[in-house]
Design a binder for these strands. Structure first.
Lengths: 70, 70
DNA sequence: ACGTGATGTTATGTATATATAACATTGAGT
DNA sequence: ACTCAATGTTATATATACATAACATCACGT
């Protein structure tokens, strides 16, 4: 799997969701706070399952949370 | 990561795309035919990158190709 | 009947996502 | 100044996605 990367708006969405913490988000979807932090910072991109769950928490379609940049 | 699974319409989309073969799809996105087959059959769900690429090939938004079933 | 392309499948290895634990830093409140 | 919650970060381990190679089956055309 080559070129292109996934970016996300998790930080902003947490902020808009009343300062939801990384740990809180992690609890809701079954990920640790360290994993949430890494995903949020783009150190690696989440599994499709994790991406769906995160989007669901914020009540947004997946493609409004994660975007593919060529 | 627990409950719920990802389902997809790849088989149908390949058919609609003029009988595109698993190997052809694999070439276009940089996956092997075996991996395409496994994803298509739901043996495991793709990475977010792979999901974005596959959706892009079929000219569909990701959520029309992959769905989250609780 | 034969050959061939598409798919299924399985085994083994590598890369990457995620968990866990530990420690550091930063910022807000008191 | 002190505490404490939130976040950053790093090391090590496990789970899962993906590659590669090999072999089997199944349909289709000839």
């Amino acid at each position: 799997m080559a070129k292109g990367r996934v970016v996300n708006d998790i930080r902003t969405l947490r902020f808009l969701a009343g300062e939801m913490t990384q740990a809180e988000l992690g609890e809701k979807i079954g990920l640790t706070r360290q994993t949430v932090a890494a995903i949020e910072q783009g150190k690696y991109s989440p599994s499709l399952e994790a991406a769906f769950r995160i989007a669901q928490i914020f009540g947004k379609p997946l493609e409004e949370v994660f975007r593919w940049e060529e």
